[in-house]
Design a protein around this nucleic acid. Sequence first.
DNA 1: TATTGTTATACTCTATAACTATA
DNA 2: TATAGTTATAGAGTATAACAATA
Lengths: 150, 150
Amino acid sequence: MPEKLPPSVDTVDTTYLESLTGYNAQRAALKVIAIFLDRMAVYGFRPVDFSVISLITHNPGITSRQLCAALDILPPNLVAMIDTLERRELIVRKPHPRDGRAFGLHLTTTGKKLMRDAEITASELESHATQRLSATERKSLHRLLQKIYL
Amino acid sequence: MPEKLPPSVDTVDTTYLESLTGYNAQRAALKVIAIFLDRMAVYGFRPVDFSVISLITHNPGITSRQLCAALDILPPNLVAMIDTLERRELIVRKPHPRDGRAFGLHLTTTGKKLMRDAEITASELESHATQRLSATERKSLHRLLQKIYL
DNA sequence: TATTGTTATACTCTATAACTATA
DNA sequence: TATAGTTATAGAGTATAACAATA
């Protein structure tokens, strides 16, 4: 009686993993992030840097603590990012009007100029990454994702 | 003339970031992963371990290289995961029937038993993480995410 | 007593180069 | 010559503990 050979796999069946929300969200996020890294490298922004400076852009005077809470970043990990943005003269710290412990963060003129370009690039890469989605589908996708994390 | 005080932020405006697909996908993924880590810790599985052993479960005889391609993992980073699963006696390596360089990966009886429980837990945490979504919405979400990364 | 910002540091995850055995 | 699996290691990302200054 011949030994039974162990089976080998022709095409990998991924249907089970593709039924899991975390798997799908993570794979899609990594795909968009890869495009982001490529196109935003010219600005010296990783996704987290862009999130930080974007919140400063739309919330002049925001504090480190507020950034941490909004982006779910730990305070020690934000310090180096803020330092780098300040050394690049894209942002400045101003004393907080009512809390002597805190600093308010603001864009410089250079920062404002750079962010105008960066947000255009972000919008373009967004379109590219989601090119197989209609505008309605993209809106719907955002709403469904926000139902999970907000 | 009094010095103008810098503005401070009351509630953080995150609408711009929430218009970006990568941001939404990443935030949702991290939320689901946090729930995953909590509930799957009893099995000793991180998300990537579960993805690996799940593909072995549904693809008996799959090779390391096929796992790397399917999950977008680099070969050096897979080695320790496979070693750990083998040392836990959840999987075994068998010689590949047609390629002397490769091994086919298979669940042991112990592995099969554990995976039955683990997939039930995964299904439960999936429901919990997406409890604000209807079955239709979850299906729709998966389809939209797959349009991005597949 | 609690909070903001910070330093130092440990831990995990991801990436690159190079080797061996076989195709 | 190319590929599967592996080793060693570097780099990036994420986490905890503890401190000074201010609320």
